[in-house]
């Protein structure tokens, strides 16, 4: 497996900057929806070898509520929100529902919708590319199991995957969850091309 960098530091920081603006907008939208203050960590852009990818996100057998939003258009990608069980419970509690009920599930999907739509709006306005979210899907299972199909889509022609990951925190709810953007194989080049890099 080759180990030379696929992209320059400048290209990675450009991608990281888009993600930074995107998650900033997403956090603002979420804060407005739930009426609580939302913090984000600066997103990290990282190329990870496939065999290390799952564990880089956390312990692979951790049970999570996962909301997957397929991104369609010029640069296909996946956006995955991974809520540890207690985070899903406290976020749903804040919205007056129960994480394991149908209502709780659709509340989490709606949060996926809002975060993803504002994130993608930033990407579109920054790059001029056209990308939009497909309806979000939900699964409750081990972290590794919900992420492996997403990774599979990104590694058809390469053995490394670009992760843009950040943590989102809702202070009043003691809720901390992962936001992961994984472009499909050719989408990274399209994003960079649109930026002229």
């Amino acid at each position: 497996m080759s180990t030379e960098p696929l992209y320059t530091d400048m290209q990675l920081s450009a991608i990281q900057e888009i993600a930074n603006i995107g998650t900033g907008n997403a956090a603002t939208a979420l804060a407005q929806m739930i009426g609580a203050s939302v913090d984000i960590d600066p997103p990290q852009a990282e190329f990870v070898p496939l065999e290390l990818a799952s564990e880089r996100l956390g312990a692979v057998e951790t049970p999570v509520v996962a909301v997957l939003t397929p991104v369609v258009g010029d640069a296909p990608a996946s956006i995955l929100l991974a809520f540890p069980f207690d985070a899903a419970a406290s976020l749903c509690g804040l919205l007056g529902t129960d994480a394991l009920s149908d209502m709780g599930r659709s509340a989490l999907q709606e949060i996926g919708n809002i975060l993803t739509a504002s994130y993608l709006t930033s990407i579109c306005s920054f790059t001029g590319l056209s990308v939009e979210p497909a309806p979000p899907l939900l699964a409750v299972d081990m972290l590794g199991a919900v992420v492996d199909g997403v990774l599979a889509m990104a590694v058809a022609d390469t053995d490394r995957v670009l992760f843009l990951k950040t943590a989102i925190r809702i202070e009043d709810a003691y809720c901390d969850f992962g936001f992961l953007f994984v472009p499909e194989a050719h989408s990274v080049d399209r994003l960079l091309g649109a930026l002229g890099l």
Partner: peptide, 11 residues
């Protein structure tokens, strides 16, 4: 992992 009756995504 992600059941969806409507989506035909190859994922």
């Amino acid at each position: 992992m992600f059941a969806s009756p409507t989506s035909s995504s190859s994922l």
